[in-house]
């Protein structure tokens, strides 16, 4: 009897442990009164950014309680891919992982007038829907670059580092692509787009580049004068910080700009499909709600901007994204990157 109870407790512990194996960063319930429906979202987006969107969504869809869980993109993947956790909507900045979810048959198809209005490059298989376009930018310190012209391309940046290496030593910031999924995504796309990526990485490694997990810390260090510039910072975060942070400037390089799309998909495990579909329609229509996008700091899909700025290269959704998720490919890439960035003196 006791053994059975212990065994039962153990099984329960294992089961609940398995249920919550992925790591949750934050969790908030936006209750509707009276509640007629429930929408459980797992997302990588901060509450600061997403709260205005949820509130506007609830105004348009009264009665839907929104259960908002924040997790890192890796944890989100673990929750949906490995544990098949029941969420109605997955919102992530990791385009590669979202694509893998859809490719491996873990997402539901949905088509509506709103999703039909999205450009072809902003959706895949009617399962993955992009609703923001956020370029990777260079954030520079105004004091450091005072009186000089900031670099406009990667070649210019390489020349700058070559010509005056000692000035930049230890004052370069970039993602540690081994820990940051977004950093890895940007780095792999850079390596695909230009040969200059590896030269730049070598140079930055030689100049004792500082590695960060997140855009926020990099921006703070640029503003605080510890960094001369930070490479491949998420543009939308930089934009949202620029208002209350003195001393930083955003440089959009002119050779090319990798553009990350924040995407939403409805997992197979979704139990409340209707409110999830309503949310996808709502997100797909964000470009028609400029006040909302200003409040959330999430730049909406804008095909016009692509025509105006040839350098913008939205990362293409599709099987190509699976390549850098390949175990061997990832190992090789990280090995090369590590050997380039960590040059022992």
């Amino acid at each position: 009897m006791r053994i059975a109870a212990i065994a039962g407790g153990l099984i329960f512990a294992l089961w609940s442990g398995a249920l919550l194996a992925f790591e949750v960063e934050d969790h908030k319930i936006y209750a509707a009164d009276p509640q007629t429906d429930l929408l459980r979202i797992i997302s990588t987006a901060d509450l600061d950014a997403f709260a205005p969107i949820i509130e506007a969504y609830q105004a348009a869809n009264p009665g839907v309680t929104v259960d908002y869980t924040i997790a890192s993109s890796t944890e989100l993947m673990a929750a949906l891919y490995d544990e098949r956790a029941a969420f109605d909507l997955a919102i992530s900045s990791a385009m590669d992982l979202q694509t893998k979810l859809a490719n491996d048959g873990l997402a539901q198809s949905y088509a509506s007038a709103a999703t039909g209005a999205l450009p072809d490059w902003a959706k895949w298989r009617d399962q993955v829907f992009g609703f923001t376009q956020e370029p990777a930018v260079l954030v520079i310190s105004q004091t450091f670059f005072a009186g000089t012209e900031p670099p406009r391309s990667r070649e210019a940046l390489i020349n700058l580092l070559r010509n005056d290496p000692e000035r930049f030593r230890g004052r370069i910031g970039t993602y540690d692509v081994r820990v940051s999924g977004l950093g890895y995504l940007f780095a792999t796309q850079d390596s695909r787009n230009s040969e200059s990526f590896w030269r730049l990485t070598e140079l930055m490694g030689g100049l004792d580049a500082q590695l960060y997990c997140c855009s926020g810390d990099m921006i703070s260090d640029v503003a605080g004068g510890r960094l001369a510039f930070a490479y491949n910072v998420l543009g939308s975060y930089a934009e949202s910080r620029i208002a209350d942070t003195a001393g930083i400037e955003i440089v959009e390089l002119e050779d090319f700009l990798s553009v990350m799309l924040r995407t939403a998909l409805i997992p197979n495990t979704a139990e409340n499909v209707e409110p999830a579909r309503a949310m996808i329609d709502f997100l797909a229509g964000l470009s028609a709600a400029p006040r909302l996008t200003a409040a959330s700091g999430l730049p909406p899909i804008d095909e016009e901007s692509l025509r105006e700025n040839n350098a913008l290269r939205p990362i293409r959704l599709g099987p190509g994204l699976l390549v850098f998720l390949d175990r061997l490919k990832r190992e090789t890439f990280l090995r090369s990157w590590t050997s380039a960035i960590e040059q022992s003196p």
């Binding site: 490719n103 298989r125 293409r316 599709g318 190509g320």
Partner: peptide
């Protein structure tokens, strides 16, 4: 045995249609 998966080998399968690739 090692492999550096060529990007184009997989991405070319996605150029014509939105088919799932394994």
């Amino acid at each position: 045995v090692a492999l550096e998966l060529p990007y184009s080998a997989i991405s070319m399968l996605g150029t014509i249609s939105e088919d799932r690739v394994f």
